[in-house]
C-alpha cells in the first residue's frame, strides 16, 4: 500500500486554495493572496476576530482565520445578505466560525479521499484586542495574507 502523508506545506497549500474558493463563493469577493504576512503584527492594536478549528490525526494543526471587526462584518453581510448594521455580534462570530468550518471541511474531505485519517474539531471564534494565540510548537507556523478590496484576512496554520 502506498504511504499517504501530509505535511504542513501541503496542508497550508490546500487551505490557501480553500480560503480563496470558499470566500469567493460565499461573498462574491475577488480574493487575492499574498505570502507576505508581516502586516499581521499591526493587527494587534485593532479589534480582531478569529475563527479557529483544529485538525487531528495524520497531522495535528490549528487553523485560524483572522480579520478586523469591520472586515468581518462586511464578509458576513455579503454571506447572509443582511446589512452590516443589522448584524449581531453573534452573527459575526457564527459567520467567521462557519467560514473556517467550510474551508477546513473541504480540505479534510480532499485528504480523507486520499486515504488520510483526519478528524476535525468544532469551530469557534474569538474576538478582542491584542489577541495572541500560543501553541505548543512555536516554530511550525505558516501565515498567509488575503486581500479583497478593503478587506484583509490572515490565515495562520500552526502545528500542535
Amino acid at each position: 500500500m502506498d504511504m499517504v502523508s501530509v505535511d504542513m506545506k501541503k496542508l497550508n497549500g490546500l487551505l490557501n486554495r480553500a480560503v480563496i474558493d470558499v470566500i469567493t463563493t460565499m461573498t462574491g469577493f475577488d480574493v487575492e493572496d499574498d505570502p507576505d504576512c508581516s502586516q499581521f503584527a499591526e493587527f494587534e492594536s485593532v479589534e480582531t476576530i478569529i475563527g479557529v478549528m483544529a485538525v487531528f490525526g495524520s497531522i495535528d494543526a490549528v487553523v485560524a482565520l483572522a480579520t478586523d471587526i469591520n472586515s468581518s462584518k462586511l464578509i458576513v453581510a455579503y454571506m447572509t445578505g443582511i446589512m452590516p448594521t443589522d448584524l449581531t455580534d453573534e452573527d459575526v462570530h457564527d459567520g467567521m466560525a462557519e467560514l473556517v468550518n467550510m474551508l477546513v471541511g473541504r480540505v479534510k474531505a480532499d485528504l480523507v479521499r486520499e486515504g488520510l485519517d483526519l478528524s476535525i474539531t468544532s469551530p469557534f471564534s474569538i474576538s478582542g484586542t491584542n489577541i495572541e494565540m500560543v501553541f505548543k510548537d512555536r516554530e511550525n507556523r505558516i501565515c498567509r495574507r488575503f486581500i479583497a478590496g478593503d478587506v484583509e484576512m490572515f490565515l495562520s496554520v500552526a502545528k500542535i
Binding site: 490549528v62 457564527d94 466560525a97 478528524s119 474539531t121 489577541i131 495572541e132 501553541f135 500552526a158
Partner: peptide, 20 residues
C-alpha cells in the same frame, strides 16, 4: 483524542462557540 491546547491572550476577549 484531545488536541494540545491553544491559548489565547488578549483584552476584552469574547470567545464563542455557537449551537453547541
Amino acid at each position: 483524542d484531545i488536541t494540545p491546547p491553544s491559548i489565547v491572550f488578549g483584552s476584552d476577549i469574547y470567545f464563542i462557540i455557537s449551537s453547541v
